[in-house]
Design a protein around this nucleic acid. Structure first.
Length: 884
RNA sequence: GGGCGAUUAGCUCAGCGGGAGAGCAUCUGCCUUACAAGCAGGGGGUCGCAGGUUCAAAUCCUGCAUCGCCCACCA
């Protein structure tokens, strides 16, 4: 390796592309069923085919890639199964927009042509996100890539539908559902996003049929009164006791409607009297059911008033509201209007205000599915990380409602149900020729498709070949970890658990990692439409994939992370640091054969101890899914310990003339440490930064193989030595103190200094002496004298550190005022610390109640501070005698 | 209405019972033969507020304030 072969600045681009194609060519990511190995599997949360990589994906897929790469290195059979989701509404909307540009509509094309067109779009544009994942370095098994509408997957969806139907868990019913008047489809409850909007609560007079009296109802949606069939009051409400059972004349419609009693009515809200519109309100639908009321649908699918709305026919919801209010106003029936904040549901895809709508839809009965799913988390078979999300899961699951799964779309899994003239419904996986009720052959398939989330609920097993009993299923199911964003815990995570338990009779995964949500730096949601999003691809372009991954992971610690690009810059600098440290080593390796462990000095043992600690603590972090902390440890170790201290210390041995036995031995030790640390460190870092580690790994020639399958480092044979580490911290402190003196007196780097150190603790002298070469290398001291007793030299700057009294001889260079200020500042700080310590030690409660080791520590601190104080005071007093 | 989370240096965040930390920004000095994407040395914080528990509280408990998120049949 020559210097010219490594640039001084790391250029990620070519290196990243080179390695990713190599990895793909050699099939490194392809998982093999191998009973001799422990399986470790992750199914990717399938991104929408319409999607492009956003920051959430970048973070989530980095997490998964780290886990899967680590597992691979641990010798597990690691499968990361990728794929995409057909995303019914989203994709249909995209293609419809494309058609609109050509002046076409899906109706003009017809269903089958439209569907073909969507497939064509999917083939051409639906895989951008897969390419983006590759840029990130994701080690997915692309040979197993799936799509929620591929042939096998579609068969699985049908199978599930039919089985649930046969088990009585799927039924069809005429019910109130959430209707999007723009997408023209039903939505499930959790696809509706509620937003508090400032509206009005209108108080409207409904006259009694038999007298001049009236009842005032309060409503936020006066236009729905066109569909009113009753007014309900609480049976316990004294104000309305005499009204119950009487009739009202519905204004504008002149319909006679009854006053009924229903305990669901809140006496304290509004006027305590509720207009009942069963076709357009969830709650009213239930009241209507209890009282056998008629349901009058007054809206078309596009939420315009229909024929049942009398003269208002053809108006949309908001026009109708205006018209109704103005007519009521004119009739003097509006008692008052007060402003009122209330939650309004919006479509999660197009943000149109949802209309509660009465229609025929398919539903899944959820309670029987939810019960075992609750149990699986309760008994710990599935764990959420962080654990608090389990409560969120329970809250939803314990109050679960039936799931509306039919969608009035063309893109998706068409419901495998056929209707016959006889009224019979045939539900089957294969296209039926005969009605299951009457045997008739004139069958028409239900036109609706299934909720996209119905198919994605099967993801962990349908992707592995279910309903066939495949080798993959037997080996890789249940999967190990699911990593996901918190906003799809209900939509996806919970439903996978239910479906997995129902159809595989087993949980889909053992651990659910809920990663932080990526926010903008000012705490706003990242959104393309708001222009607040950051494109991960731009970041990769700017900082490289390794730095982007590392920078994301290291800041992913809070529940909401405010994305800070600075952390990526820091990571990019870190990559560069690693690159250059490698450069230093590679340029200087002489290839000494290291047969056995060479003789090591204390600096060597110290960095090995630090390294061992890093490995141990990192493994603990992994066990707690705290990847962010590992990233931080990696950074601190490599930059703060290995580069800043060990590499600098080792240079004296590295650059020593290789002309005697001692110098050669020194080199052998240093090279041994370099190789030992770099070899293990690169492996530890590899899951986080796959590209640069692979590149450096190959430059070192640590193995002929890719680093991908090198063993996960555990630091076997390395020892942690806390006392050595503590001693070493002292050495560092001494170095810093000397450097600080250098800086105070603005000594040029080339200026050699003379240092004397008095060490009052005889047990530390030997160590200090052995470290004196480090100290001189790091401080530019040409000579260091170490004694247990020393006469304080004149014309010197001083520092006191515990048992150590340090003098930097500065003949002719010392500025008395500067030195006095320096010492006084130090003295003040020592005195402040000392008074705190003394305060504690003089407190009998402390000395008697605090643990012994804590008290002991305080006493030691007191002794040390006292000594430092004396030394500094002495030095200060001598300062006056200095004559320069 | 219920629940969850956050509040620590100018900014983004660690720390979660015993000496206030990191990165960035800032100040000073360095192109020292790995790295100026760097090196060395500094400055900067009554850890949101008020109580409580404890010998000891940024750390545990209670209340409050502010911000964010989730859930709810808020007609």
């Amino acid at each position: 390796m020559t210097k010219s072969e490594l640039n001084t600045g790391y250029e990620p681009k070519d290196i990243e592309e080179k390695w990713y194609s190599k990895w793909l060519e050699s099939g490194q990511f392809t998982a093999k069923v191998d009973p001799a190995k422990e399986p470790f599997s992750i199914v990717i949360p399938p991104p929408n085919v319409t999607g492009s990589l956003h920051m959430g994906h970048a973070l989530n897929n980095t997490i998964q890639d780290i886990l899967i790469r680590k597992a691979r290195m641990e010798g597990k059979a690691a499968l990361w199964l990728p794929g995409t989701d057909h995303a019914g509404i989203a994709t249909q909307n995209v293609v419809e927009k494309e058609l609109a540009k050509e002046g076409l509509t899906k109706e003009a094309l017809g269903r089958s042509l439209f569907t073909l067109r969507v497939w064509k779009w999917k083939e051409e544009s639906g895989n951008t996100i897969i390419g983006q994942l590759k840029k990130m370095g994701c080690s997915c098994d692309w040979s197993r890539e799936r799509f929620t509408m591929d042939e096998g997957y579609s068969a699985a969806v049908k199978e599930v539908f039919v089985k649930l139907y046969d088990d009585g868990l799927i039924y069809r019913g005429n019910r109130i559902i959430n209707w999007c008047p723009r997408c023209l489809t039903a939505l499930s409850d959790i696809e509706v996003e509620h937003e508090d909007l400032e509206g009005h609560l209108w108080h409207i007079r409904y006259p009694l049929q038999s007298s001049a009296d009236h009842i005032i109802v309060a409503t936020t949606r006066p236009e729905t009164m066109l569909g009113d069939v009753a007014v309900a009051v609480n049976p316990a409400d004294p104000r309305y006791k005499d009204f119950i059972g009487k009739n009202l004349i519905l204004p504008l419609m002149d319909r006679v409607i009854p006053i009924i009693a229903d305990s669901s009515v809140d006496m304290d809200f509004g006027t305590g009297a509720v207009k009942v519109t069963p076709a357009h309100d969830m709650n009213d639908f239930e009241i209507g059911g209890r009282h056998g009321l008629e349901m009058i649908n007054i809206f078309s699918e596009a939420a315009k008033v229909n024929e049942s709305g009398g003269k208002y026919v053809g108006l949309n919801r908001y026009e109708a509201r205006k018209a109704v209010l103005s007519d009521l106003e004119e009739a003097g029936l509006v008692a008052k209007a007060v402003s009122h904040l209330h939650g309004v549901g919006h479509c999660y895809r197009c943000h149109t205000v949802i209309e509660p709508y009465l229609s025929d839809q398919w539903f899944v009965k959820m309670k029987p599915l939810a019960e075992p799913a609750i149990e699986a988390v309760k008994d710990g078979r599935i764990r959420f990380s962080p654990k608090r999300w389990e409560k969120v899961y329970f809250d939803w699951m314990e109050n679960i409602k039936d799931w509306c799964i039919s969608r009035q779309l063309w893109w998706g899994h068409q419901i495998p149900a056929w209707y016959c003239e006889c009224g019979g419904v045939t539900v089957t996986t294969s296209n039926p020729t005969q009605c299951s009720s009457c045997g008739g052959s004139n069958l028409i398939q239900d036109e609706d498709v299934l909720d996209t989330w119905f198919s994605s609920a099967l993801w962990p097993f349908a992707t592995m070949g279910w309903p066939k009993e495949t080798e993959d299923l037997k080996f890789f199911y249940p999967t190990s970890v699911l990593s996901t964003a918190r906003d799809i815990i209900y939509l996806w995570v919970a439903r996978m658990i239910m479906m997995g338990l129902k159809f595989m009779n087993d949980i889909p995964y053992h651990t659910v990692i809920v990663h932080p949500t990526v926010m903008t730096i000012d705490g706003k949601r990242m959104s393309k439409s708001l222009g607040t999003g950051v494109d991960p691809l731009d970041l990769i372009e700017k900082y490289g994939s390794d730095a982007t991954r590392f920078g994301l992971i290291i800041q992913s610690q809070a529940q909401d992370m405010r994305f800070s690009e600075e952390k990526l810059e820091m990571s990019r600098n870190f990559v560069n640091k690693i690159w250059n440290a490698s450069r230093l080593i590679l340029m200087n390796l002489k290839g000494h054969e290291v047969g056995s462990i060479p003789e090591l000095d204390r600096a060597d043992l110290w960095i090995l101890s630090k390294f061992k600690k890093l490995l141990r603590e990192s493994n603990d972090d992994f066990a707690n899914n705290n990847l962010s902390q590992t990233a931080k440890r990696i950074y601190d170790f490599f930059w703060g310990e290995f580069c800043d201290w060990y590499l600098e210390i080792s240079k004296s041995r590295l650059y020593a003339k290789d002309d005697d036995e001692k110098a050669r031995a020194g080199r052998v030790s240093v090279e041994y440490i370099y190789l030992t640390v770099m070899n293990g460190f690169l492996r530890l870092l590899h899951p986080f930064m796959p590209f640069v580690t692979e590149e450096i790994w190959s430059r070192f020639g640590f193995s002929d193989e890719s680093i991908i399958f090198s063993p996960w480092p555990l630091g076997e044979g390395l020892l942690e030595d806390d006392s050595l580490e503590a001693d070493f911290e002292r050495i560092k402190d001494i170095v810093v103190a000397i450097r600080s003196i250098r800086a105070s007196f603005s000594l040029a780097p080339s200026k050699e200094i003379e240092v004397k150190i008095e060490c009052a603790d005889s047990s530390k002298i030997e160590f200090l002496a052995s470290a004196s070469t480090y100290i001189s290398a790091l401080t530019g001291a040409k000579e260091i004298e170490i004694k247990d007793k020393l006469k304080a030299p004149k014309k010197a700057a001083a520092a006191a550190l515990g048992p150590f009294q340090i003098y930097v001889l500065l003949e002719g260079l010392i500025d008395v005022d500067v030195e006095r200020e320096r010492l006084e500042k130090r003295l003040a700080s020592i005195e402040a610390d000392l008074s705190l310590v003394l305060g504690k030690l003089m407190n009998d409660n402390f000395t008697s109640k605090a643990p012994k080791d804590v008290v002991e520590k305080e006493r030691a601190k007191k002794a040390e501070l006292t000594l430092e104080k004396e030394k500094i005071a002495l030095q200060l007093s001598q300062l006056g005698d200095l004559r320069f």
